[in-house]
Amino acid sequence: MPLNRRTVLKQFLYMSAGMALLPACLQHHAKSSMLLKHIAIDGDQEKTLAELSETIIPATTTPGAKDVSAHLFVLTMVDDCFTKADRDRWQAGFAAFEKMSNDLNGKNYLSSTPQQREALLTKLETVKDEKDDAAWFYQATKRLTIRCYTSSKFYLTKVQVYELVPSRYKGCVPYKPAARKVA
């Protein structure tokens, strides 16, 4: 249960913060469900990430990114494994991403319709400028979403099966292309 430590800490901090600081109703944004060490994310941003990951890998007849909590994995990895420079850029890119959403759709990502979200991502996919922070944020988030999804329990037990104990090695067997899987 990798997130337990964070959850417990979060609850502890909620209690002390709740007693010492403001009533919850005065807080502008809901809090993130995770306690992060380096980056600051509020509850709306967390929801935005969840929706972004779901647009990248949507639930169909099979689970989507939200079902495997890809957005929480993105936050864990950015917070724990990115260098400071990359963390800063990811956060700046997040803001640039929201600005781009406002410029294109007149609203932030969370309030956008599925069509508007897709229009934004279609635009981001075409950005070639490596200096573009919004595109960098998008690609980094997408990469982590894909990594989480393709290493999730669902994917590794139902799609491409990971064998913990193969018990065999055959050096030369006929190659049979796998039948195309419906996603």
């Binding site: 990248i56 949507p58 099979t62 997408k142 393709t150």
Partner: peptide, 17 residues
Amino acid sequence: MHTEGFGKTLKENLFNP
């Protein structure tokens, strides 16, 4: 794994490396 794009097309590609 082909990782261009997003949505159902991407998901289809992830299912079929």
